[in-house]
Design a protein around this nucleic acid. Structure first.
Lengths: 192, 192, 192, 192
DNA sequence: GATGAATGAGACTTCATTCAT
DNA sequence: GATGAATGAAGTCTCATTCAT
């Protein structure tokens, strides 16, 4: 009665292969056949783990988004002082984008593209709530500008994506010093 | 000349159709046949005006990029005071992204994707030189932080792309007041 | 014996599932996986009971054909008078087609299609021999037209398949009265 | 401005190839690739002439059905006496089934199968109306049994399909004499 | 015996591009 | 220059069957 079980390994290999191919070749030219080959399975096997290509992409997106936000709020607790807390989260995010370049790059592509279902996108957004809460707290304390959280995000967090992009293209080097500069800019843009 | 005019019309119709289809359906699912249909020409006709699909996309990208930077430096002259000049350029860019949403959205997709040749991308970057020069001037005058122009761009300009994205998704409204807030954040992040 | 019983159950479930799927979806779109699911077994299990898909279909066909002819000759004995005997058999067949619509419909599909091996088809034909013998007897007695048994079958029996077909499509209603009419037509067509 | 036009020839070659393949191999195992090869075109070409496989089958069905009924009513005029008229139509149909064996066999498959859309089937039925009208006339004149036209069709016409089937399997030979016998049986079954 | 995972072959269909007019 | 037909190559996905437990 013991049978082969769906292996987490294979699933992960497929997700990883998808990530690599989409990153290097774009969503177009990341055919299922190549994904299968890269993951060392038959094309048909993909459909045991995922409903179809869209589902594969969606699941990858969600999984990465979750891992991303997990990292973002590592060591964070709600009763830290606002600036300290922001700094922590900011560096967490920066580190994620620096160390998990491929994952970050994939997420950026999804956010600027029609690749992802609106549903999955919505789902992915939810996980940032604690940061929004933190900003609200900061606004109440008179530390942070009283503007839309979207504006805050645009200046405090999103520029990291651009910098990472430039680094990936070897136009810019994100070292310790420039990280400090970047953080300073982020903070200056949102603090009162 | 009548013929040349007519040709220009067809070429433009093709570029416009491409823009629309890529924006709405993504680069995948923007087949040449649909582009042709939308531009009211035969698929074969596309190949009179463009070498192939990649060339079509590249040319569209460059054309938009040029129009974008033209707008960006409208009314700008090198001997304006730095902050005034920056404000002018910033609002020029903001207006472009607000009014030519589709064009701006297409450019954003290109910048976060493998759609475009590295060549064309380089080519597109050149046109921003005057802004870089302005920043350098500001740095010499001690008005602007002494950091990489990429960092300055990441904070001063790039956030607009994010805000526009949110506005397109109807999550955020870019009105006069919020534009003012955005400009303030931009300026705060790069000024000394 | 418990095991053998259980096995018989599974085999029957598979045959039944095949019947249903082929009837509703057609031979195409009756994949082994769906058959398995409908019979609540694993796809692999099918291959314990049947050699392959063709074998499954063939066996189903033969089984139904046997059950069909069993019904056809229920209560029949060779020394009944010809017309009485024919009436008995005719109504037996009619009842089968009326009550076991699905089975009858499946058989009709097989008889008009490449689904079935020529072998199995031959095998299925054999079981009608008693009817042919009856006709021969009737011919000798000068009651039934002296023509090929195929012709007799075409007029005496086969029309029931068409009527059943129409009934299945809800274009025609086979009630007591119309059965009587049909029998009369059958008899008129073959009697001298 | 003159361009290649969709050729009737190619369309016909495709329909013919489909007919042959479906007849010989069944609807399953009549893949588009084989159809294309048999018609000497590229698989992609099929989709210029037909929307998809279902459409190809549907169109083939309708075309054959029309040609079938055209033949059926050849030389027929409404003011012929009932029996003469019936005989004419009956022989027209018989001849069609004898001479256009493949076409007739394909139609029979469609009528006993899920291959065809219910829509196309309905469409195909319409064309038999004149025969129904003839029967109604015969009933008013007291020549033909006062029963449902479906019953009349089942006995007067449908047996030909069975006989043709047997002939195709070389179990029965439909020569002049047996045709006469068959017509007699048809007439006996429906006349008063 | 029974199973769910796994798969190679192949199904239908689409696409960028070329052909022939 | 302009076209619609035509196509080879390739894409996504399904299927009958086998594997490994």
């Amino acid at each position: 009665m013991a049978i082969r079980e769906k292996s987490k390994e294979k699933r992960n290999a497929l997700l990883k292969a998808t990530l690599n191919l989409v990153n290097n070749n774009g969503f177009h030219d990341a055919p299922m056949s190549k994904i299968a080959k890269m993951a060392n399975v038959s094309p048909a096997t993909i459909y045991i783990y995922f409903e179809n290509k869209q589902d594969l992409i969606n699941q990858l997106y969600l999984e990465l988004k979750i891992s991303y936000t997990e990292q973002a709020f590592k060591d964070y607790s709600e009763n830290m002082p606002v600036k300290k807390a922001f700094e922590l989260i900011w560096y967490n995010i920066a580190n994620y984008k620096l160390k998990q370049v491929d994952e970050a790059w994939f997420l950026a592509q999804c956010d600027n593209t029609t690749m992802i279902d609106e549903n999955s996108r919505q789902e992915g957004l939810k996980h940032l709530q604690p940061l929004l809460d933190l900003w609200e707290k900061g606004q109440k304390e008179g530390i942070i500008k009283d503007v839309s959280p979207y504006l805050l995000y645009a200046y405090a967090i999103n520029p990291l994506a651009f910098l990472m992009n430039m680094q990936k293209r070897e136009l810019y080097q994100l070292d310790k010093e420039s990280l400090k500069q970047a953080f300073q800019a982020s903070w200056d843009s949102i603090r009162i």
